[in-house]
């Protein structure tokens, strides 16, 4: 994926209002793989007795990162939407730490893209959450460029 397309992807993702609200940051993007991170934020806590971030915020990170992976795939989708997304919460994210997600678009058909994603905090060896999802693939109309 060339530099121009990567910059475009970054601007596109970071301009999404909900991605802005969660302060998501695109760390890397290339040919079907995206890495996006989210800072720790007390407003997103799900359990004040532990300070752990709510799963709903992690869902948004996983969904955005998965969509970015689809858009960066060499198949050149012009748009995508989530069909379904399943998230497994393996452990609580450590309060105070940034959560980083890596999503990989591992298969694309004419109309559907399949994605796997994993989320980590500072402990790279133990994932916080894992996701699998199916996404729509919108293509440019044939004959038009």
């Amino acid at each position: 994926m060339d530099q121009d397309r990567q910059n475009l992807a970054r601007q596109f993702i970071e301009a999404i209002p909900y991605a802005k609200a969660l302060d998501l940051r695109l760390e890397a993007i290339d040919d079907g793989v995206a890495v996006i991170s989210m800072p720790y934020d007390e407003r997103m806590v799900g359990d004040p007795s532990t300070g752990v971030i709510h799963g709903g915020a992690v869902s948004a990170l996983m969904d955005t990162c998965s969509g970015a992976a689809v858009m960066s795939h060499p198949t050149m989708a012009i748009a995508t939407a989530t069909i379904d997304l399943r998230i497994d919460y393996m452990r609580s994210a450590t309060p105070g730490q940034r959560i980083k997600t890596r999503a990989e678009c591992y298969h694309v058909t004419r109309n559907v893209a399949f994605v796997r994603a994993t989320a980590f905090d500072d402990d790279d060896a133990n994932p916080v959450a894992a996701a699998t999802g199916a996404f729509t693939v919108e293509r440019a109309k044939e004959g038009k460029s």
Partner: peptide
């Protein structure tokens, strides 16, 4: 702030997921 696609516009899938959870 809940928007995910400003062109349509549409709610962000992550906002919907958070709401449901």
């Amino acid at each position: 702030k809940l928007i995910g696609n400003p062109l349509l516009p549409a709610l962000h899938g992550g906002a919907t997921a958070g709401f449901l959870e």
